[in-house]
Design a binder for these strands. Sequence first.
DNA 1: ACCTGAACACCGTTCAAGT
DNA 2: ACCTGAACACCGTTCAAGT
Lengths: 196, 196
Amino acid sequence: VDEEGDSGFNMRLLADRLGTSTATLYRHVTGKEELMVHVVERLLGEVQMPGGPRHSGRGTWQDAMRRMAVQYRGVLARHPNMLPLVVAQLPIGPNALALRERSIATLTGFGFSRGLAARAFTTILQYVVGSALAQRGDPGPAEAAAIGDYYRTLDPEVFPHVVSSADELTAVSPEDGFLAGLQIVLDGIDRARRRR
Amino acid sequence: VDEEGDSGFNMRLLADRLGTSTATLYRHVTGKEELMVHVVERLLGEVQMPGGPRHSGRGTWQDAMRRMAVQYRGVLARHPNMLPLVVAQLPIGPNALALRERSIATLTGFGFSRGLAARAFTTILQYVVGSALAQRGDPGPAEAAAIGDYYRTLDPEVFPHVVSSADELTAVSPEDGFLAGLQIVLDGIDRARRRR
DNA sequence: ACCTGAACACCGTTCAAGT
DNA sequence: ACCTGAACACCGTTCAAGT
C-alpha cells in the first residue's frame, strides 16, 4: 500500500510479489477487506507511546498527550497512502486499544475522571485524523503555494475573507498549523478539567 | 449515492436511472471522480449558515460557530453514505468556500484576527469531520450497545482503563458526545482569543 | 492437503458504428 | 452533431482441475 497506493494495490499484485496466486491469498484472509484491517492494525503499531502511569511523573498531561498526537500524526504522514484505509475503518485491534489504554491511563493518572479522560482522548484522536485529512497529499511548499494561489484567484468581491486570509493560512507550515490546532484542543480539555 | 451507497453507486446504474447509456455520461463529466466532486459540492450546499457580519449582533461567536458545526454535522448525518466522498476530497467549490467565507466573516466581526479566525474555522471543521467518521454508520442504541459490549469482552487485565471507561463512553448519546467535544474545541479557541 | 490457471461477475472508460 | 451497444482493461473472488 505504501508503494502502490490505496487504489494501486490489488490482490493480483500482492500474489505476484509473494510468488503465489490470488486464490492462495484467500486461504489466509477472507478477503481484501480483512487484509486491510490487518494493514491498519500494523500501522497503529508504529505509534510509539511511553507506557502508562509510570510515565505520569515526567512532564504534564499536556506534554504526554501532545507527544501521543505528534506520534500519531507522524505515522500518518509517513504512510500517506494508508490514510484512506484508516478513515474507512473503526480501528479496534490490539494496537488501537493499547493506544487508547495508555492514553486514558495517563490522563486518569493526572487526576482526570474516566469520563473526561475518554472524551479527551477521543477528541484529540478525531482532531489528528481530521487534520491529517485536510493536509493529505505531501503538502510541501509547492502544494501549499498552489492552494494559496487558488485562493487568491477567487473574486475578492464574493469571498473577501477567504482571499484576505489566504496568506495567514498558507504562511504557517503544516506542522505549525497542526500544533496550533492541537494546542486549541488541549486548552479546551484543560478548561473542562478545571471545571470539574 | 444516498440510496445505493458509495460502493453501490456506479456509472451503469446512473445511466440506467437517467434512461441513457454510460458513454453519454462522459459527454457531461470527465469521469466518475469529477461527478463525485459535484456530489460533495451539492451536499455542502445543504449546510445552512446565517449570513455573515449582519448576524454578529445576535448571540456570541461561540453560538454562531456551534450552529455552523451542528448544521454541518446534521448534513453529514443525513447523508452517511457520502462521508467517504467528503473525506476523499479537499472541498474547494463555491459552497465550501461560502461556508468558510461566512464563518471567517463572523469571527472577524467578533474581533478575531484573520489568522486566528482561519485557524479556528479549520480546527472546528476538522473536528466535525473527524467526529463524523468516528460515529459513522447509524450509531443507534443497538450499535452503541454492541460497541460497548465489545469493549467489555476485552480482558480487564490487558486493557483495564478501556474496559472500565466503556460505560462512560457509551452512556452519552452520539449527539451529546459530539457537543461535548465541540465545546472543548470552542473553549480552546476562546483561550487563544484571550491570549492575543 | 494444498495450490493454481482460468473463469465469473463487475466496473470505469472508450470507440466504432449508427441515427 | 449526438447517442449507444459492445468492447477493452482491470479487479475481487471462486472453483474445477491438478500435484
